[in-house]
Amino acid sequence: MLAADDPLILDLVEWVAREERSHAELMESWRTACPRLTVWEDAIERGYLMRQARLVTVTAKGRELLSTSGRRTA
Protein backbone atom coordinates (compact mmCIF):
# COMPACT_ATOMS: atom_id res chain seq x y z
CA MET A 1 0.00 0.00 0.00
CA LEU A 2 1.11 3.57 -0.58
CA ALA A 3 2.48 5.72 2.18
CA ALA A 4 0.79 9.05 2.83
CA ASP A 5 3.60 10.84 1.01
CA ASP A 6 3.22 8.90 -2.27
CA PRO A 7 0.36 10.69 -4.08
CA LEU A 8 2.53 11.27 -7.15
CA ILE A 9 2.96 7.53 -7.65
CA LEU A 10 -0.80 7.13 -7.53
CA ASP A 11 -1.19 10.00 -10.02
CA LEU A 12 1.33 8.41 -12.38
CA VAL A 13 -0.31 4.97 -12.26
CA GLU A 14 -3.71 6.55 -12.89
CA TRP A 15 -2.31 8.58 -15.82
CA VAL A 16 -0.87 5.45 -17.45
CA ALA A 17 -4.12 3.53 -16.85
CA ARG A 18 -6.16 6.11 -18.78
CA GLU A 19 -4.56 5.25 -22.12
CA GLU A 20 -1.62 3.40 -23.64
CA ARG A 21 1.61 5.37 -23.10
CA SER A 22 5.00 5.02 -24.67
CA HIS A 23 8.09 5.09 -22.49
CA ALA A 24 9.24 8.24 -24.30
CA GLU A 25 5.91 9.99 -23.63
CA LEU A 26 6.08 9.06 -19.96
CA MET A 27 9.64 10.32 -19.61
CA GLU A 28 8.79 13.59 -21.34
CA SER A 29 5.63 14.20 -19.33
CA TRP A 30 6.98 13.14 -15.93
CA ARG A 31 10.54 14.45 -16.11
CA THR A 32 11.97 16.37 -13.21
CA ALA A 33 15.19 18.09 -12.30
CA CYS A 34 14.90 16.89 -8.71
CA PRO A 35 17.06 13.80 -8.13
CA ARG A 36 15.02 12.93 -5.03
CA LEU A 37 11.78 12.68 -7.00
CA THR A 38 11.83 9.06 -8.15
CA VAL A 39 8.18 8.55 -9.06
CA TRP A 40 8.83 6.41 -12.15
CA GLU A 41 11.43 4.23 -10.46
CA ASP A 42 9.30 3.79 -7.34
CA ALA A 43 6.22 2.78 -9.36
CA ILE A 44 8.29 0.17 -11.24
CA GLU A 45 10.02 -1.10 -8.09
CA ARG A 46 6.71 -1.52 -6.26
CA GLY A 47 5.23 -3.43 -9.18
CA TYR A 48 2.54 -0.93 -10.18
CA LEU A 49 3.90 -0.31 -13.69
CA MET A 50 6.00 -2.27 -16.13
CA ARG A 51 7.77 -1.52 -19.37
CA GLN A 52 7.14 -3.80 -22.32
CA ALA A 53 9.34 -2.83 -25.27
CA ARG A 54 8.39 0.82 -25.92
CA LEU A 55 5.15 0.79 -23.93
CA VAL A 56 4.50 1.33 -20.25
CA THR A 57 1.53 -0.54 -18.80
CA VAL A 58 -0.24 -0.82 -15.48
CA THR A 59 0.15 -4.19 -13.78
CA ALA A 60 -2.59 -6.09 -11.96
CA LYS A 61 -1.07 -4.79 -8.72
CA GLY A 62 -1.28 -1.24 -10.10
CA ARG A 63 -4.95 -1.70 -11.05
CA GLU A 64 -5.66 -3.04 -7.57
CA LEU A 65 -3.95 0.02 -6.09
CA LEU A 66 -6.15 2.31 -8.18
CA SER A 67 -9.28 0.41 -7.23
CA THR A 68 -8.58 0.46 -3.50
CA SER A 69 -7.66 4.14 -3.70
CA GLY A 70 -10.91 5.05 -5.45
CA ARG A 71 -9.05 6.10 -8.59
CA ARG A 72 -10.02 5.55 -12.20
CA THR A 73 -8.71 2.35 -13.76
CA ALA A 74 -9.55 3.05 -17.42
Rank of each mutant, 00 (worst) to 15 (best):
P35G: 06
E45N: 12
A33Y: 08
L26H: 02
L12I: 03
I44T: 13
E19P: 10
W15S: 05
R51Q: 12
G47I: 05
L49I: 07
E19S: 09
H23R: 14
T32Y: 08
P35Q: 10
R51S: 08
R21W: 04
A4E: 04
L10R: 03
E14S: 01
A33F: 11
L37G: 10
D42F: 05
R36C: 13
W15K: 05
L10A: 07
I9K: 02
L26C: 00
A43P: 07
R51D: 04
E41Y: 00
R36W: 08
R36F: 11
L26P: 13
A24Q: 10
A4H: 01
D11I: 01
T38A: 15
E28G: 12
T32H: 06
V16A: 03
W30L: 03
E20I: 14
M50H: 14
L26K: 03
S22N: 03
D6P: 04
V39A: 12
D42V: 07
L12Y: 00
E25Y: 12
S29A: 11
A24G: 15
Q52Y: 13
Q52E: 15
M50F: 05
A17D: 04
P35C: 08
D11N: 10
V13M: 09
Q52R: 14
C34W: 09
D5C: 12
W30K: 04
L12T: 03
L26E: 01
T32D: 10
A3L: 06
M50S: 15
L26N: 04
L37P: 04
R18N: 03
Y48V: 05
D6E: 14
W15N: 09
R36M: 11
S29L: 13
A43F: 00
A33G: 09
C34R: 12
E45D: 11
